[in-house]
């Protein structure tokens, strides 16, 4: 049994009488020590999946179907107080923008110690020592002084290191990183990503890496999920998908990357943009933007089916070979 098993997860929002599905049947497994990438454009439902795992979907949204099993327990039916004990302790989360994630009126130290004291019985002195040690592990210079700093006194890179230190504080089994480097300077993105991956690797922490950057996923994860409009469109081993994508959308994402051997060449965009939840096209949600689309695509939603060693949701997956 996998460490984290997500089955047919659906999240729905009640908006002005209508029920909009932000997630429409997402399933995946995460093994201990594994790294899983979730890729897609903004609005694909990537972050929604992350919040759903932690049961942090706020009103008017809710998990309407499916299950999330972690370490043998079903999380989505857990009482609120039991779920709270899982958050931060067993499953931690790293958010996108370190400028927004840390509370501006509390010191770095206060935001670390509160986490320790909530989940463990620990003295103030021990909590401080442990926090400073974690700050040292994420390579923050003079961690003792930084413990008493306010977030606004730190650079973006340092703040994200603090956030990573907080995520690692209680040695969680899983870390969900939602676009952990997107808001950072390009020059330090690789550094922070490398640090995060190293720390997860050495501690055997499983990682769910949520990003719009398919290149990052291809370099860092074993398995990946490509999402579009709340559905998984392609799922399987990262290496295989990157080498030969079976879904036109995955292929579009890969072709949109700048090519190293063709500098200056024009990028291949995917025409159009992701539909909003209220205006999903009939059939395959991607078909208005797809070069392979025909009448079958607007006629019926393609099921997620097995194709070789992977899963793909496209009527024409075979044609992409």
């Amino acid at each position: 049994m996998a460490l984290l098993e997500v089955r047919d997860l659906e999240v729905e929002f009640a908006m002005r009488g209508a029920r909009l599905k932000a997630l429409r049947g997402v399933s995946f497994d995460l093994d201990a020590g594994d790294r899983l990438g979730i890729v897609g454009e903004s609005g694909a439902g990537k972050s929604m999946a992350a919040y759903a795992i932690l049961n942090l979907i706020s009103e008017p949204g809710r998990i309407s179907a499916g299950s999330i099993a972690f370490d043998g327990r079903v999380l989505n039916t857990l009482p609120a107080e039991e779920m709270r004990k899982v958050r931060g302790d067993r499953i931690a989360m790293i958010f996108q923008d370190p400028m927004m994630t840390l509370n501006p009126v509390l010191t770095v130290g206060a935001q670390m110690v509160e986490c320790l004291k909530t989940h463990r019985t620990i003295s103030d002195g021990e909590a401080r020592a442990l926090s400073v040690q974690k700050l040292r592990e994420v390579a923050i210079p003079s961690p003792d002084a930084r413990f008493d700093s306010y977030p606004h006194e730190l650079s973006g890179g340092l703040r994200q290191r603090v956030v990573i230190a907080i995520a690692l504080l209680l040695d969680p089994a899983v870390i969900i990183a939602d676009e952990p480097t997107t808001a950072l300077d390009v020059t330090i993105q690789a550094e922070i990503m490398g640090l995060m991956l190293d720390l997860c690797e050495t501690r055997g922490v499983s990682l769910i890496l949520i990003t719009h950057d398919i290149a990052v996923v291809s370099e860092t994860t074993q398995r990946m999920l490509v999402m579009y409009a709340g559905r998984v469109v392609e799922q399987g081993e990262t290496r295989g998908i990157i080498a030969r994508p079976s879904h036109p959308y995955t292929r579009g994402l890969l072709q949109a990357l700048p090519q190293r051997n063709k500098p200056g060449a024009e990028l291949n965009q995917i025409p159009g943009s992701m539909p909003t939840l209220a205006e999903l096209p009939p059939g395959c949600a991607f078909h208005p933007r797809c070069a392979y689309a025909d009448d079958t695509c607007s006629g019926g939603v393609p099921a997620l089916r097995t194709l070789g060693k992977r899963l793909v949701a496209c009527h024409h997956a075979e044609r992409l070979k």
Partner: peptide, 21 residues
């Protein structure tokens, strides 16, 4: 805000999220 979400994701008591954060 994100910092309230982050405080919730840290597993803090709802009371602490509300009154401190």
């Amino acid at each position: 805000t994100e910092y309230v979400r982050f405080a919730q994701a840290k597993g803090l008591h709802p009371r602490r999220v509300l009154f401190v954060h």
